[in-house]
Amino acid sequence: MQIVDKALEEVTGLVGKVVGKAPISDNGQTLTVAAPPDRVAEFWRDPHNLSRVLGDFGAVSVTGPDRYRWTLNAPGGQTLTWESTLEDTAHGLRFRGVPQGDGAAGASWIRVDFGTAPQQLGTEVRLHARLPLPGLLTGAAAFTVLYRARALLQTGELPTLHHNPSARTGDR
């Protein structure tokens, strides 16, 4: 039944694109980070870190106490900008959209949950995003953001192929 639901969601997204409205999608991704939960939570509160892990997907800036402005690059060269407030939850953090105009932005959120990884291997970080972006991009983007966050937390560096000494002409 999940396959049918996913197909329906994708068709709805395609129809939404045609008529000019993208559906709101909620996809989650999980990775284990070899770091304690308090360090992981501190990482996710820093807008500089968020901008670094978003990379080409967008940028984050602070607009006030516990208020963030997210600028996300949507498919087709469009840019999605929304304000959010940072809230502590029982299992992590939530960036909740601040309603503007018709209140549609209030339905957007990004939630980062933390839990102890099995066999004391660090912290399991689960990223959920409910954004007006097509479902597949949100899932792929969520995984990429988590992957980059894990790399920064564990090594202090982002994985990249830029300046690769392999003599390739492209970034790949």
Score class of each variant (00 low, 15 high):
residue 157 E to P: 00
residue 62 V to S: 13
residue 97 G to P: 01
residue 66 D to G: 10
residue 143 F to R: 13
residue 95 F to H: 05
residue 53 V to E: 04
residue 160 T to W: 00
residue 104 A to G: 07
residue 70 W to K: 09
residue 77 G to V: 10
residue 33 V to C: 01
residue 111 R to C: 05
residue 124 E to S: 12
residue 63 T to K: 09
residue 85 T to L: 02
residue 70 W to M: 08
residue 36 P to S: 05
residue 58 G to D: 09
residue 44 W to H: 08
residue 128 H to F: 08
residue 125 V to G: 02
residue 28 G to E: 07
residue 52 R to K: 15
residue 125 V to M: 03
residue 85 T to W: 00
residue 153 L to E: 08
residue 96 R to I: 11
residue 57 F to I: 13
residue 114 F to V: 02
residue 101 G to S: 07
residue 138 T to N: 10
residue 51 S to D: 05
residue 164 N to M: 00
residue 163 H to S: 14
residue 101 G to T: 09
residue 128 H to K: 10
residue 88 D to H: 12
residue 129 A to K: 04
residue 26 D to I: 10
residue 91 H to M: 05
residue 72 L to C: 05
residue 144 T to V: 07
residue 109 W to Y: 15
residue 68 Y to D: 04
residue 121 L to F: 01
residue 29 Q to S: 11
residue 69 R to G: 03
residue 95 F to W: 04
residue 165 P to H: 14
residue 123 T to S: 11
residue 122 G to Y: 04
residue 26 D to M: 06
residue 115 G to F: 03
residue 120 Q to N: 14
residue 158 L to M: 07
residue 84 S to A: 14
residue 72 L to S: 02
residue 70 W to E: 03
residue 81 T to S: 14
residue 115 G to M: 00
residue 125 V to K: 00
residue 156 G to C: 09
residue 144 T to K: 13
residue 100 Q to M: 07
residue 91 H to T: 12
residue 32 T to E: 07
residue 107 A to W: 08
residue 93 L to N: 09
residue 107 A to M: 05
residue 86 L to E: 12
residue 83 E to I: 02
residue 101 G to I: 07
residue 96 R to N: 11
residue 24 I to M: 06
residue 145 V to M: 04
residue 142 A to E: 01
residue 123 T to L: 03
residue 45 R to E: 11
residue 111 R to K: 14
residue 163 H to D: 12
residue 74 A to H: 07
residue 108 S to L: 07
residue 122 G to M: 05
residue 137 L to V: 11
residue 111 R to V: 06
residue 121 L to W: 00
residue 74 A to G: 09
residue 94 R to T: 14
residue 142 A to D: 14
residue 111 R to A: 12
residue 143 F to S: 14
residue 48 H to L: 13
residue 160 T to V: 07
residue 83 E to P: 00
residue 144 T to G: 02
residue 113 D to V: 06
residue 29 Q to M: 13
residue 66 D to T: 04
residue 125 V to P: 00
residue 133 L to C: 08
residue 108 S to N: 12
residue 148 R to S: 06
residue 79 T to H: 11
residue 68 Y to R: 09
residue 53 V to P: 01
residue 133 L to Q: 04
residue 91 H to F: 00
residue 124 E to T: 14
residue 58 G to I: 10
residue 131 L to N: 03
residue 142 A to K: 06
residue 131 L to S: 02
residue 74 A to M: 07
residue 165 P to F: 08
residue 91 H to R: 13
residue 145 V to R: 01
residue 76 G to S: 08
residue 90 A to K: 15
residue 75 P to F: 08
residue 25 S to F: 02
residue 38 D to V: 03
